[in-house]
Design a protein around this nucleic acid. Structure first.
Lengths: 175, 175
DNA sequence: GTTAGCGTGTTATATTGTAACATAGCGTCA
DNA sequence: TGACGCTATGTTACAATATAACACGCTAAC
């Protein structure tokens, strides 16, 4: 809650796929800390349930479905909430900009730049299943450009890129 | 089936949103003609059912859901096929590159460049509900660029842009 | 005319998402 | 303090989207 959180450098703020064997616990911790901060700024409440759901989204770097979260909640806490409970928590987290929705998978994953208004693209590795968020400035400009040519006013955009991450491509791509 | 179809200029090959009051029947006709050609080239069969589904996808320039297609089939032809029937036809049309899927809507709409291997973006007008396909070369380059920086190998991409089309923005945007 | 392969039909069910209403917690202010 | 209002969560029921698995029939090739 103190000011030192404002620029806490960490794995979660790193664009791209994290290295194998990275300290994932700190990804989660950072995400929760950032969420606390963002909610405080926005005057909203990161309740216990919402925090739990956020942690479950951050359980790995693979996008996670709403019903998978529901399962994990059941396992972790013994109670099994009904779907609306999970969807409402996810809606909240989406509104606060703490998670993103991946349309092509009907799944969610943790935002790596919480609290910053930002446009982004999602890279999805079809081998390992992980997702990574990368800044979308360049793509956004390209989108705006072609839209403008048609008199189309851009409100928001979804860019999801399927392919293989460096780790899955093997040593050849590690350069 | 004759060679004159190969370059039939038409509304369907126009990128962007068609003008209000355009001759939509020719959009549909062109789409079916192109489908015949593509299937002939690919050695696949545009069966009656598949043609019907394609026509229903082309019923308007708004993306259409699988169950809406199912409804229309029921109305148009008296019989009500089960969901797998429609999904199989849609899968076929997707494979042949005759329709696109809009992930953020769970809906489908007709490809305006059938038979050409192409990368594209989808513009979705949140006012009138219409979709338009536009060439995605610029966006594709931007996507490749940021992916390459992370050693990510792009296979395919989904770019969906929400906003307002020129018609819906009114005269100010008609310039 | 038999047969292999493809396309479609059919049944059942899985997966994802929401509407609508009930209950509970919690701060505020008369 | 206790009634009120607001937000969050619980609960029930259902809607919307999608697929698995197996049956049947057509047709093209031999």
């Amino acid at each position: 809650m103190t000011v030192k959180h404002r620029r806490a450098a960490s794995a979660t703020t790193t664009a791209g796929f994290p290295r194998r064997g990275h300290n994932h616990a700190s990804c989660v911790d950072d995400a929760v800390a950032a969420a606390d901060r963002v909610c405080a700024q926005n005057g909203t409440r990161l309740t216990e349930l919402r925090r739990q759901v956020l942690e479950l989204v951050w359980r790995s770097h693979e996008p996670v479905g709403a019903y998978a979260i529901l399962e994990h909640l059941a396992v972790d806490s013994g109670r099994r909430p009904a779907p609306p409970t999970v969807y409402r928590a996810l809606d909240f987290l989406l509104e606060q900009g703490l998670v993103h929705r991946i349309e092509s998978r009907n799944a969610f994953f943790g935002c790596t730049r919480p609290g910053e208004k930002h446009l982004f693209e999602i890279l999805l590795c079809t081998d390992c299943g992980r997702a990574a968020e990368v800044p979308g400035d360049r793509v956004t400009r390209a989108v705006k450009f072609s839209a403008a040519a048609l008199g189309f006013e851009v409100d928001r955009q979804t860019v999801e890129v399927m392919g293989r991450c460096r780790d899955c491509r093997g040593p050849a791509a590690q350069a």
